[in-house]
Amino acid sequence: MTPAACAFCAIVAGEAEAAVVLDDEVAVGFLDTRPLFPGHTLVVPRTHHETLVDLPPEDVGPLFQRARRVAAAVVEILGAQGSFVALNNTVSQSVPHLHVHVVPRTKGDGLRGFFWPRTSYAEGEADEVAARLRTALEAPGS
């Protein structure tokens, strides 16, 4: 998707309406139009990047500093007891522009754990998967 066709780029540019809660040189935060709970906010980088892997390393910290501020605000202002902070990379990403979900949470709100079924590792499988990931992460340039 080109930035010109991106719904979130249009919001960042002020060309599309959104209930904006944060707007600075790094990111824009706005209420999700289909919230899990009132205050469910999407925090997006101003520049178009589709996934977290596409975001330049120097931009990761500043983006998550904004998500952190929103997470604090939903507790302080909306009376939430905590928050759920998450993002999707490609799969389940309804708009292909990196966005961090900050969802206010309260005990007993009906949201249970993660939104998908949990599984278990077969005997020895966890060690094998961990070894493969360690090898990839230890490789130069990873």
Rank of each mutant, 00 (worst) to 15 (best):
P3G: 05
A5K: 13
A5R: 10
C6F: 04
C6L: 03
A7C: 03
A7P: 05
A7K: 13
F8P: 01
A10D: 13
A10V: 05
I11W: 04
V12Y: 01
V12K: 02
V12H: 03
A13F: 05
E15M: 02
A16D: 11
E17T: 13
E17I: 05
A18L: 05
A19F: 11
V21F: 05
L22K: 00
D24Y: 02
A27L: 00
A27P: 08
A27N: 09
G29Q: 07
F30I: 04
L31P: 04
L31E: 11
L31R: 03
D32L: 01
P35R: 13
P35S: 13
P35C: 14
F37A: 15
F37P: 00
P38Q: 06
G39E: 08
V43M: 07
V44S: 02
V44P: 05
P45Q: 02
H48R: 01
H49Y: 15
E50G: 09
E50R: 15
E50H: 00
L52G: 05
V53S: 11
V53E: 14
P57L: 15
P57C: 04
P57N: 11
E58N: 14
P62N: 09
L63Y: 09
F64S: 06
Q65D: 14
A67E: 10
R68M: 04
R69M: 13
A71E: 07
A72I: 00
A72Q: 13
A73E: 15
V74M: 09
V74D: 11
E76M: 06
E76V: 12
I77W: 01
G79D: 13
G79P: 07
A80T: 12
A80L: 08
A80E: 13
A80F: 04
Q81V: 00
G82V: 11
S83N: 12
F84C: 01
A86R: 06
L87C: 11
N89K: 05
P96Q: 12
L98P: 05
L98W: 08
V102G: 07
V102M: 03
V103M: 12
V103W: 06
R105P: 06
T106S: 15
K107N: 09
G108M: 08
D109C: 12
L111P: 01
L111Y: 11
R112S: 14
F115V: 12
W116Y: 14
P117F: 00
P117G: 15
S120F: 10
S120L: 13
E123K: 15
V129D: 07
V129S: 06
V129N: 03
A130M: 03
A130Y: 10
A131C: 05
A136N: 02
A136E: 11
L137I: 00
P140F: 01
G141Q: 08
S142D: 06
S142Q: 00
